[in-house]
Design a protein around this nucleic acid. Sequence first.
DNA 1: CGAATTTGACCGGCGC
DNA 2: GCGCCGGTCAAATTCG
Length: 288
Amino acid sequence: MAGAGDWPFAADEAYADSSAIFAELGWANGLAVVDAVGELLPPLDPPGELATPPPPPLDLPETPAGSSADGAASSCSTDDADGGKPAAASTEAASKSLTPGKKRARQPRFAFMTKSEIDHLEDGYRWRKYGQKAVKNSPFPRSYYRCTNSKCTVKKRVERSSDDPSVVITTYEGQHSHHTVTFPRAAATAAGFSHIHAMAALAAAPFSAHQQLYSNLQPPPPTMPLAATTPASSSSLLQLPLHCNHELQVVASCGGYPSSSSSPPASVLPVDKGLLDDMVPRAMRHDG
DNA sequence: CGAATTTGACCGGCGC
DNA sequence: GCGCCGGTCAAATTCG
């Protein structure tokens, strides 16, 4: 597929720490941080400090986003495992159940940080925890979840930032092959989970959408097809075209809001229309 | 009773 | 070659 090379997580294994992913995205000044109450939070204080250990020079082996306009294309999709250096551990363990010589295709990853006291945030999908590991340099364990849909291979990792325990780092891997099972839309809205929902929706969006998103995120913003009507000089509002002809607005805080306002501009507010609900045609909302 | 979680073991890649 | 580490498996346990 063309353009897949835009995926910045080519050699995701290089990102020892999830925060490094953001750094790579140029979000070091303020990751996509949302609060469980639905408010987009200003960039975490010491910008970049979230990257627990100073993000090492991300010298991606040979699949850096951009090393190839279309060559590294596969880097993100699945077979990049061969393109870049073999995954440190995300695949081999799985290879246990695979025939020798066959590596599990690596899935694209999408990570975001959420300020919340809850580790495992509701995102509309059902997950089953299959492991928990202590993380080096972090007092908090990392939990591994897998989508309960047997046909869905999406996984997600949840861990707390060692620098800011109030921040939960969620990393999705793969795409859902189905749609959200159930989600208390009203409750979610009431609880202000819109942003989280949006992020989760992103994780569920077609990969092409991811690419779109990331290509938009790539700094410096080229001719960003932004819908932002406000001086999004420091924050970026992205419109993510989805397959169902709806648009999901995602806020990527890249340095805070315009100094003039302490809250997100109206146009940056979450779409309060039931993100997944609107994204997913009702007819398609059958599990599996 | 079935589903989900917990937890220790195991595997393989990587760095030294 | 060895030890560390991340990721996964699977049996045991807990929960609804």
